[in-house]
């Protein structure tokens, strides 16, 4: 029994031996570690922490999008007594009390990647470092619309998870453009539909493939994540030629580049996730060290097409983009 106890105490003591840093920062995110997108956020977070010598911890979830678990991680970070918290706000209400509690305890909270759908009006967080999700959705649809063929247009919008604010906010931006596009072209038949498309490549591939079999007139598919790459695989299996149906989505991940090179994906938006991890830490550091105030940073809505792939891929090995 003594032996067991000492093994356990020793391993716990190991956890505790991290050097005493000046500041401790936590990043509370809404995904599990298997989601490829988050690697660049994490890299930015770690690089910034190393630069300012902070002790940093990124808290992931066992289940992608489990908001109750994310709330618990946020509350645990407050209990740890850290010097700053970066979090995502994936639900308009459930994180409000915890954010207020952190601020009351003197812990600055900024959001990154995903903000409250109402922004500063919906949450007391001090700033947001990330993409304007709705605007990025609008821009994505506007840019792809230049490739729409003449005649009637039917668009499918894949809302990865209807319960996640980042997902439906982007989808709302896409839908808003489609409404504007329809108003600008009153003589054309322009329609769109939203489905809950899922959050892994094969699920999205299957759902989109099923959809287009019953709706073969679908002109384009928009995904609110990077899973349009799954849709590309799905329609390829149905015998679609590259470009026969337009595909667009968000974020730069390898599988999207591969589909762009094959000609199946036409467009993606870069939200520069490295900045989201990196700039949040620097903000928290400067706020703690010099009392500077937080500021919003729009990390971008750069449109990336097949022509940009070679250049971006040359940076890819650095896990930054």
């Amino acid at each position: 029994m003594k032996k067991f106890a000492s093994i356990i105490l020793a391993s716990v003591a190991l956890f505790a031996t991290s050097a005493k840093a000046e500041y401790k920062f936590n990043f509370v995110m809404h995904s599990d570690t298997n989601n490829a997108f988050w690697a660049a956020v994490h890299k930015g977070f770690k690089d910034a922490c190393a630069q300012v010598g902070a002790d940093c911890q990124m808290l992931t979830l066992s289940g992608d999008g489990d908001q109750q678990e994310q709330l618990q991680n946020l509350e645990s970070s407050i209990a740890q007594g850290v010097d700053g918290i970066v979090t995502t706000i994936t639900n308009p209400t459930i994180f409000d009390a915890a954010v207020d509690e952190a601020l009351a305890a003197g812990i600055p909270v900024i959001t990154a990647n995903t903000d409250d759908p109402e922004g500063a009006a919906g949450s007391n967080r001090l700033a947001y470092v990330g993409q304007d999700l709705e605007a990025a959705g609008y821009e994505l649809a506007a840019t792809l619309s230049k490739q729409f063929p003449d005649g009637p247009v039917h668009v499918l919008i894949g809302v990865a998870d209807m319960n996640q604010s980042w997902a439906y906010t982007r989808a709302n931006g896409i839908a808003r453009f489609m409404d504007d596009f329809k108003a600008a072209n009153p003589d054309r038949e322009i329609t769109y539909e939203k489905i809950e498309s899922g959050m892994d490549l094969s699920t999205v591939g299957n759902r989109v493939a099923s959809y287009v079999q019953t709706n073969p007139n679908t002109t384009a598919y928009f995904d609110v994540g990077f899973w349009e790459a799954g849709a590309a695989q799905g329609i390829r299996n149905l015998g679609y030629e590259p470009g026969q149906m337009l595909l667009a989505g968000f974020d730069l991940v390898d599988v999207v580049f591969e589909e762009m090179e094959k000609g199946y994906v036409q467009l993606t938006v870069d939200q520069q996730p490295y900045y989201q991890g990196y700039m949040s830490v620097h903000q928290l550091y400067l706020m703690n060290k010099y009392g500077l105030s937080a500021l919003d940073i729009n990390t971008g809505k750069a449109m990336i097409g097949p022509d940009d792939v070679a250049k971006i891929r040359s940076f890819k090995g650095m896990s930054v983009r």
């Binding site: 716990v12 505790a16 570690t33 002790d55 911890q57 808290l59 970070s77």
Partner: peptide
């Protein structure tokens, strides 16, 4: 256990490994 792992500031990649090991232990 879950709370303790977070409080001990174990890194993200190790979170589930830590929880799993402690369950087995």
């Amino acid at each position: 256990l879950e709370s303790g792992i977070i409080m001990a500031r174990i890194d993200a990649e190790w979170f589930r490994a830590g929880l799993g090991s402690l369950i087995i232990i």
